[in-house]
Amino acid sequence: MRRKHGFWIGFVSVFRGLGVTLLNLVGRRKVTVQYPLERPKVSPRYRGLFYLPFDEEAGRLKCVGCTLCAQACPTKVISMKKLGSGKHAGVSEFTMDLGRCMFCNLCIEACPFDAIHMGPEYELASYNRNASVFTIVDLAPGGAEAVRRNNATIEAAIKAENETGGSERKGHIAEVKLVVPPKTGGQEA
């Protein structure tokens, strides 16, 4: 009796399987992305290449060189050179060796100024190890021009502060808000 039952299950399931493959044949959208010709649309929260947001209003990178991201990084990807100090602090160099990076997002969560982000760029393969080291020029959205403006703004601010004696220090720091990294992403773009 059990044997007979199994036979019918097998008999029916063959035709059911044929139906499934037929539905796949005619009714299903093809999932293939022909990569070099077509580009996949990445999610806005995709963890691709890092970038350092540029604050157009202030005319400088948001990064203040506090090294919290470098300390949070488990694989010591980040190294930076601080420029200035106090309320006008910034960075003149910011280097990431992505050969070691595992894209864990910890640096972004650590940043209190929302000054480092992961973008949609995913083609990070390179022909040698040095090419996976990204400097501040590669990471700033405007490239060398943005870095030049950043350095000029900070240096001018420091010079001005030295001349006036630095009275506005506390007020400026109070304006800095703790920014939680956006979970939905894409807000910078």
Partner: peptide, 13 residues
């Protein structure tokens, strides 16, 4: 081609 279509792929292209 046929196998590709059945598996939601494109097949040779």
């Amino acid at each position: 081609k046929f196998a590709g279509w059945m598996q939601a792929r494109l097949g040779p292209k």
